[in-house]
Each structure stands twice: as structure tokens, then as C-alpha cells.
């Protein structure tokens, strides 16, 4: 399918990019393009103006406390300081898609990844032939037909560990910048997906200095070990105080329309020893709290069961110290 025509703008600063966005409300920001351009080719949410960010060099910097939205997944996966301080972030970047896609795909692109669904990620003719679904501008959801909400699945990986580690996202808009905690950024709705206003640009991810005190893990299920989107992802961040849990955050990812921080399960373990039995109990609790629907390749009931398995794996890895660079 051909890329539809659009006018490309090439700002060199964040301020210019935000100004261009105001000038052309019918526009998209383009970073690595590995999600946006394939969607354009399928005529999904195409816009006449595209604001390419490839010259905005201020957004490329990577440090363990601040990562620019234009950092590529490859760079994050290769960054020694990230591996040192927040290894789960570096590791997760390397679990996304395939090496070719990671070469151009960016942090910002992954955080803003369009939700996915069988009935949305199809050609125009296909979508038209079964009557457009809600997300494609129609009136009914084809996944849960009685619903008026869109169930497209959240398919980005990095938000899982970033939420678990307490990251905040920096947004630049016409009236300046603001920060939103990652955990409040996403909404459990396949269409109205996040807190970013249309005139804002996601610029940086800030990790709290305490993030490096956590042992974290991200466990991803996918059918093929390359380039498949997650069927589920479990992120955990664990902080120990001696023998007992001081803080534990568990995020169930890629199972619903947004990543889900399971606060009560994590806080329930505070002050307790993280025994095998405690891990099994927490994993079982995760299974009961996630609600996948049938719009990815593997069945929802299986993904629910696997949420338990992958939570256990994540907790075991975190308890053992977290991922190490291969």
C-alpha cells in the first residue's frame, strides 16, 4: 500500500515543533516512524501534515534519570549507564519488535504507540467491509459488540517498567512544559488513550533517583521471539529493606487498553518476606485482576493464566537481583 501524501515539516527545536503543531492542528509528530508510517499506509488516522522530529537533537540524550523521547530503542538497549542503574529499562527496550525496528523506533514512539486490534489494524477496504469499528470511526466495537467503549489492546512494552519504577513523562505545549506521572498518563480506553493534549509533545521521561534502588523485571509473552507485539507483559519493581519488602509495584501490561498498576497486590506484601509462597499468592492475585479480550492472537483465558506465570517469573527475577546485561 502506498504512503498517502502529506507535507513534512522539519523543526530543529522543541519550541519550533510545538509552534508548528499549533499552526497545523491536522498533523502528527513523527519520530522513528515504525508505528505511524505503517498505519498511514493502511490509511489509519492519516493527516495532511507531519512534523518530523529527526532534527530535534535536544531530545536524544540518555541518562539513568532522564531519557529523551528520540532515544532509539537500540541506543537504550546499548546504554551502559542504563544497564548499570535501571537495567530493566535497557532490557525492555531490547525486547521490543526486531533489531531493524529498534534501530529507528524510539522511546517516545513506544510510549505513544497506537493501541492495536484485529478490527483496526487492517486495510481501509477490510475495515469498511465489516462496517468500521469504533476506533476506525464506526459506531460499534467488534470485539465486545454490546460495548460503546473501544477495547483496542495497549501494545507498548516500556510503559510497564516505567510505571513500576515511578517515572514521569514531560510534555511540552504552547503554555510551557508539565509533568505527568506515568501511572496517570494512560487511560483504559482504546480511543481516548492518554493524558497528552493534542497540542503537546512528549519530550522526556524522568526516572526518580530512587529508581536505581529497585530490582525490577519485565516478562513478555509473545508468539515469536522477534517482532511480535506483546500478548502480555508483567513489570515488577521491588525494593527490599533487609529481609522484607519495603516497596513493590506490579504492572500488568498489554492485557487491556492501558497498563494496569496493581497497587493492592504490591502493597499487600509490604513489610513481609518475599517467600516462594508469597510470590505464588501475588501471581494468583494478578490473574484474577486482569481482563484481556479476544483481539490478539492468543486466547484471552490463556493470557489471563499466563499473567500468573509471568508475574511469578518477574518476581523471581526481581528477587534474584533483576536482569543482567548479556
Amino acid at each position: 500500500m502506498l504512503l498517502p501524501p502529506f507535507q513534512l515539516h522539519e523543526p530543529t527545536t522543541v519550541a519550533e515543533a510545538v509552534a508548528l503543531r499549533q499552526l497545523h492542528p491536522e498533523s502528527d509528530f513523527l519520530a522513528g516512524g515504525t508505528d505511524l508510517l505503517p498505519n498511514y499506509k493502511w490509511q489509519l488516522n492519516t493527516r495532511p501534515h507531519v512534523i518530523g522530529l529527526h532534527k530535534v537533537d535536544e531530545l536524544r540524550a540518555i541518562s539513568p534519570t532522564k531519557i529523551g523521547a528520540l532515544a532509539t530503542l537500540k541506543q537504550m538497549n546499548m546504554d551502559g549507564a542504563l544497564w548499570q542503574e535501571v537495567p530493566v529499562v535497557a532490557q525492555t527496550a531490547g525486547l521490543i519488535a526486531s533489531p531493524l525496528i529498534r534501530n529507528s523506533g524510539t522511546l517516545g514512539g513506544n510510549l505513544m504507540l497506537e493501541n492495536r486490534c484485529f478490527f483496526f489494524n487492517q486495510s481501509y477496504v477490510w475495515r469498511e467491509s465489516i462496517d468500521f469499528c469504533l476506533k476506525a470511526g464506526g459506531t460499534a466495537c467488534h470485539v465486545v459488540p454490546q460495548e460503546t467503549k473501544c477495547y483496542a489492546t495497549f501494545s507498548a512494552d516500556l510503559p510497564g517498567p516505567l510505571i513500576a519504577l515511578g517515572a514521569t513523562f514531560e510534555l511540552a505545549g504552547p503554555s510551557g512544559t508539565r509533568r505527568v506521572p506515568a501511572v496517570e498518563f494512560y487511560k483504559n480506553d482504546g480511543i481516548d488513550r492518554h493524558a497528552k493534549r493534542p497540542d503537546e509533545l512528549l519530550t522526556f521521561v524522568h526516572l526518580p533517583p530512587t529508581a536505581s534502588q529497585y530490582r525490577a523485571s519485565y516478562q513478555k509473552l509473545r508468539q515469536r521471539e522477534s517482532w511480535d507485539f506483546p500478548e502480555l507483559g508483567i513489570a515488577v519493581a521491588l525494593k527490599m529493606k533487609g529481609e522484607t519488602v519495603e516497596d513493590l509495584q506490579i504492572v500488568a501490561n498489554a492485557l487491556e487498553c492501558a497498563p494496569k498498576l496493581l497497587r493492592d497486590i504490591g502493597s499487600g506484601l509490604r513489610g513481609k518476606k518475599l517467600t516462594d509462597a508469597a510470590i505464588d499468592e501475588a501471581a494468583a492475585a494478578v490473574e484474577t485482576q486482569v481482563r484481556p479480550v479476544k483481539n490478539t492472537n492468543l486466547s484471552p483465558s490463556y493470557r489471563k493464566r499466563m499473567a500468573r506465570v509471568f508475574t511469578k517469573r518477574a518476581l523471581l527475577e526481581a528477587r534474584a537481583g533483576g536482569p543482567r546485561r548479556a
Partner: peptide, 21 residues
């Protein structure tokens, strides 16, 4: 298939094993 529609008419959703598999 979903009715007459092929649900996975592309090489992301029609899953051919890669060199890893």
C-alpha cells in the same frame, strides 16, 4: 477468518516462523 473476512492478511498477524524459531 471472521465470517468471510481473513483476519490476518499480513505478515505480522500471519505468523511465519523466523530464523529464531
Amino acid at each position: 477468518y471472521r465470517g468471510p473476512n481473513l483476519r490476518n492478511p499480513n505478515l505480522l498477524d500471519y505468523k511465519i516462523p523466523t530464523s529464531i524459531e
